[in-house]
Simulated assay, not measured.
Amino acid sequence: MPLNIVRDTKPFIPHDEVFEKFDIDRPGKIIFVGHRLSTAQQMRCLVRKISLYGAQLEVSPSLSVPKNFFLEILGIRDEIGCTLIRREEEKVTVGFNMLIDADFLHHVIRVSFDSNH
């Protein structure tokens, strides 16, 4: 499965739309970054799509999402540093603080595929 960048990029296309997205529909957690980087507070989410650049999450519309947080995907040990890009009711678009490794993305997609089949 290729991890392609959409080459027909125009200056007005948001960065989160440039990278190919993959449906994973995995449960996840938003882990708040508190005082002195404490991570005591968290909320559940559903990770709908993921790319090298970021992810689309689904969160209860009644909950507020912090500007910066860690994302944990069920079945994946690593936490990913994220920044909120935009929110439209329950749909939350985040950018990763740095592009994730292509091998890590393959692993996330494989774990999601294996658990759904």
Rank of each mutant, 00 (worst) to 15 (best):
M1Y: 02
P2M: 06
I5M: 11
R7H: 10
R7S: 15
R7F: 14
D8F: 05
T9N: 04
T9A: 09
T9M: 09
T9Y: 07
T9V: 15
T9L: 06
K10A: 13
K10E: 15
K10Y: 15
K10T: 15
P11I: 05
P11K: 06
P11S: 09
F12W: 15
F12M: 10
H15R: 10
H15S: 08
E17M: 09
F19T: 06
E20T: 11
E20A: 04
K21W: 07
K21R: 14
F22G: 01
D23R: 11
I24W: 01
R26A: 08
P27F: 08
I31P: 08
I31A: 01
V33H: 05
G34Q: 07
H35I: 10
L37P: 00
L37K: 14
L37F: 15
Q41I: 09
Q41M: 13
Q41W: 05
Q42S: 14
M43Q: 02
M43I: 08
R44G: 07
R44K: 15
L46G: 03
R48M: 11
K49Y: 10
K49G: 07
K49L: 07
I50S: 01
I50N: 00
I50H: 02
S51W: 03
S51N: 08
L52F: 11
Y53F: 14
Y53S: 12
A55G: 09
Q56C: 04
L57Q: 02
E58W: 05
V59Q: 07
S60E: 11
P61I: 14
P61Y: 03
S62G: 06
L63S: 04
V65T: 12
V65W: 05
P66Q: 09
P66A: 00
K67D: 02
N68R: 15
L71R: 03
L71C: 03
L71G: 03
E72D: 13
I73G: 05
I73D: 13
G75L: 00
G75C: 02
G75Y: 05
R77N: 12
R77I: 06
D78F: 14
D78P: 11
E79Y: 09
E79A: 08
E79H: 13
I80H: 00
G81D: 08
G81F: 15
C82D: 00
L84Q: 04
R86W: 08
E88Q: 12
E89F: 07
E90K: 11
E90Y: 02
E90A: 14
T93W: 06
V94A: 00
V94C: 05
F96C: 00
M98P: 10
M98T: 15
L99Q: 13
I100Q: 00
D101E: 06
A102Y: 14
A102C: 13
L105V: 13
H106P: 14
H106A: 11
H107E: 04
H107P: 03
H107G: 01
V108G: 01
V108H: 01
V108A: 06
V108I: 12
I109E: 01
I109Q: 07
R110S: 04
S112W: 00
F113Q: 00
F113W: 05
D114M: 07
S115M: 05
N116L: 11
